[in-house]
């Protein structure tokens, strides 16, 4: 992590506070993320991990505001105008949400929604947008018939891959994925995580993946941020944190996740858990 180039995303001492009461919800979060790297944010629900992403995207709920420094490339996200933030959300950073069903308009085919987004964000003509959309779908191994489908005709995993295809087509330099696999079945989870991995390796995009499932985060993340009740309790290299958690909360997260896997390992007769 000792890159000398300027990081793609930099957060310094970010606090997210309730505007009315001044009550802090997220305290003092700092990290830097370089191109082609992946940051995992783990913690239980209510720990503030989603708010960090929304602050970065400039999408905090109106009752909250962020303090500190949030920089995306050259832009100071806390001082950017709403128009600038929206422009960046389209082209610079893409977001993938937990509920793929609500991310698309049920009234239009996916092809319509893809080409419309691409034409608006990248100022393309219809034919180019269509070609680009097809290219994006091929990258996530989806058939082109998806273009003519309505959202309800696809499974959650396929829709999630469509979201990834869209961020690929938009050439997002940063992808923020908030609980991208929580709503998915086990088999779909694996497929979606594979796509994320390729997104990072082949397209040199940076990735922020937020999840309460350490297994999903472990598959992707280089570095890790552990959030507990609005505080960052541990940060560092992902493998180090997973293998030798220091903070009792991280130990608790790792321990409970390991316990969940234990039956599976035992049943398969493997013995990964070194004594």
């Amino acid at each position: 992590m000792s890159c000398t180039e300027t990081p793609l995303v930099r957060m310094e001492h970010v606090r997210i506070v309730h505007t009315d009461s001044g009550r802090p919800i997220v305290n003092d979060v700092s990290f830097a993320l370089h191109r082609g790297h992946c940051l995992g944010i783990v913690g239980e629900s209510g720990s503030g991990k989603t708010l960090i992403c929304r602050a970065l995207l400039g999408l905090l709920p109106p009752a909250l505001h962020a303090e500190g420094v949030i920089r995306f490339e050259e832009t100071d996200m806390l001082r950017a105008s709403p128009e600038e933030a929206r422009r960046l959300r389209g082209t610079g950073m893409g977001s993938i949400l937990q509920q793929p069903m609500t991310a698309f308009d049920p009234l239009y085919t996916l092809g319509d929604q893809f080409t419309e987004t691409l034409r608006e964000k990248l100022q393309l003509n219809a034919a180019d947008a269509d070609a680009l959309a097809r290219f994006g779908l091929s990258q996530v191994k989806l058939p082109e018939t998806v273009m003519k489908s309505y959202p309800h005709q696809l499974s959650g995993g396929m829709l999630q891959r469509c979201m990834i295809a869209l961020t690929l087509a938009l050439r997002s330099r940063l992808v923020v994925a908030d609980e991208p696999t929580t709503a998915l079945d086990a088999a779909n989870q694996y497929e979606v995580l594979q796509r994320f991995r390729r997104l990072r390796e082949e397209h040199d995009a940076a990735l922020i993946v937020v999840s309460h499932d350490l297994g999903a985060v472990q598959m992707l993340a280089d570095s890790l941020l552990v959030m507990c009740r609005g505080h960052c309790v541990e940060a560092g290299d992902a493998e180090t944190v997973f293998n030798a958690p220091q903070h009792p909360y991280t130990q608790y997260l790792v321990g409970t996740r390991l316990a969940l896997t234990r039956g599976f390992r035992r049943a398969l007769g493997e013995n990964h858990v070194s004594a």
Partner: peptide, 25 residues
Amino acid sequence: RELVNSTVVFSSEFTGTPTAWESSA
């Protein structure tokens, strides 16, 4: 077999017993 192969398994060398954490949720 297919299901087993596509399971995201978490692995860690952590062996200590975690102290019971009063869940934040």
